Structures are given as structure tokens and as C-alpha cells.
Amino acid sequence: MSKPVFVLLHGAWHTPRCWDRLVSELAKAGYESIAPALPSTGTPPTPDWSADVEIIRGTVSGLLKKERDVVVVMHSFSGMTGGTSLDGLDKDSRVAKNLKGGVVRLIYVVAFLVPEGFQHSPRGTRDNMVPEMKTDLEAGTITVQPEHAKSMFYQDLDNDTVAGLAKELQPHSFGAFWSTTTHAAWRYIPTTYIICTADMPTTVTAAQYLVDSAKESGPHKIDNLIKVDAGHSPFISKPEWTASTLIGEASKSV
């Protein structure tokens, strides 16, 4: 049986390059991975997250046409877009239609695991945004300044590494935070959630709340919660651990 393909979805302000260390580790173990660029990051800003959803769905659908099994890995913001993009692409739905391949597992890395109808912020507002998120309503963008990169994303990395990573941060589209989820893939696809305990304390608390709330909300397939002593981006600070963990979780579903 062929190994699954990992689809890696980056979070806000980041680009696919944030996955480079993990991609290398997965390749060493013989696993293919794809990290699409999500249009809500960068310029010009997008009015909502529909272009992200289209890219995610198109990337996964292209792999399913090749009858591949897929594991979707979401970081931070992309938990919302990833979770809403996979309606009908889960393995069970495809098998019911006599189709091969499908999404066999979701892995949320301190990501938004949210139900249908979730909106991060009401349209036209910056509600629920931390002070480090610098908003420009006229430009339609939200930015994180280099001096806040370590506390926001890279708590367990040295300052020189953080400085290099901060240079790659991009503006994120305001409209993406105003979009609303229409699907909760974790109700239908086996799901792993990774909490990084060295992340911002508020983020750790929020992540646990999201998992608990999801489990209490109704049907779900959240079957594993993993805690790791790492900052917000373990795929950068602990790529070997992250690769090993993703492969182990994927093996449960293939």
C-alpha cells in the first residue's frame, strides 16, 4: 500500500517556506508532501478566504484523482480554511462512491478547530485580535512586526533564527478573518490535535478550549491529543519530532 501524501497548510503571515525543514525530514523518511501557497497571505489582499479554500480543495482533489490517500496538516489560521475545504473528500465518502483515495487524517497544529458557522471576527471589526496584530482597514491587511515575531510564533527559537524568519512574514488579508466556516471536516475524518505548551499562554488555553468545545458540540472524530514542549511552530523548532509524529499519526489511518 502506498504511503499517504501530506498536504501542509501554512498559517497567517507565513508562506510555504515555513514548512521547508519539515518537508526535508518527511522526504528523508520517504514521504511526499505538498505545501500550497494560500492567497490570503501576501499582497494584494483578498476580500475573503474563498481563494484559499479553492487552492486547498484543488490541491487535495488533484491528489485524489491519482487515487492517493492524503493527510492534511493545518497550522494556526489554516485550521479554519482547511476544516471548511474538505466536504466530500474524506475517505468514507469516496469509498461510498466506489472511488479510491481520500483524506484519511487531519492534524491540527495549534490550529483553529472550529464548528460550522464560525467567524473569527465580525465583518468590519478587529474583534478577537491580539494587540500584536497591526490592522490597516483601509489597506485591507493585518501585519505582525518583526519585534513581535518571537512572542507570537517562535518562542523556542534563538534570536538570530527569529530575525531571519521575521523577514519572511507577509501581510495577511483582513477579509479572511471576517469569513465564515461552512464545514467541519473533523466531524468526518480522524483527527489529531497538537498543543504546543511553550506557545503563548493564551494560545495554549484557547487551543484546549477549542478541542473540548468541539468534542462537546456533537459528532466528531477527534481521537488523539498530543502535547509537546514547543513554541507555536514546532515544524521549525523540532522538525524531526514533528515529522515522526505526523508519520505515526498517519499510519493509524492508512
Rank of each mutant, 00 (worst) to 15 (best):
R123D: 03
N224G: 04
A243F: 02
D69Y: 00
C18N: 12
G140Y: 08
Q145N: 11
C196I: 02
T59D: 06
S244F: 01
L86S: 04
A37V: 07
H148G: 06
W19K: 02
V23M: 15
V53E: 05
P44G: 03
A111F: 02
L8I: 01
A176S: 15
F177M: 12
Q145R: 13
G82A: 08
W19L: 07
P16N: 06
T81F: 02
T43G: 00
V70W: 00
G101M: 09
D160S: 14
I142R: 02
G83Y: 04
L157C: 11
I194W: 03
T143I: 10
D156V: 06
V211I: 12
T161S: 13
W13Q: 04
P190W: 01
P146K: 12
F112D: 03
K150T: 08
S78E: 11
V254I: 14
H183I: 01
D87P: 00
T135W: 10
A163V: 04
S253Q: 12
E116L: 12
L86I: 09
D127L: 13
P39Y: 05
A166L: 11
P190Q: 08
A230G: 03
I195D: 01
T59M: 11
I236G: 01
T245C: 14
G79C: 09
D160I: 08
Y209E: 14
I194M: 10
D92E: 15
N224A: 14
I194A: 04
I247M: 15
T181D: 09
V109F: 07
I226Y: 08
T125E: 10
G82Y: 01
T81K: 08
C196F: 03
T180P: 00
P146R: 12
V5Y: 02
H232L: 09
D52V: 05
H220M: 05
R68Y: 02
T46H: 05
G79V: 07
V104A: 07
T242M: 14
P239T: 04
C18Q: 13
G248V: 06
S253I: 01
V204K: 11
G83Q: 06
T180E: 14
E67G: 04
K238T: 04
L137P: 00
V109M: 15
G62S: 13
R123P: 00
F235R: 06
T192E: 10
P45K: 05
H75I: 05
W178A: 03
A27K: 15
D69Q: 14
L225D: 03
T197I: 07
T135I: 14
I226V: 15
D160T: 10
D158N: 15
Q170M: 15
P47H: 05
S76G: 11
Q170D: 05
V254P: 01
E138V: 09
G58I: 03
E249D: 11
K221W: 00
P16D: 04
K100P: 00
G140F: 09
V7Y: 01
P44I: 06
T141N: 10
E132I: 07
T84K: 13
V104M: 08
T205I: 09
W19E: 01
R17M: 12
K91P: 00
A51R: 14
T143R: 15
A35C: 09
A176V: 02
H120Y: 09
V110R: 07
D92M: 11
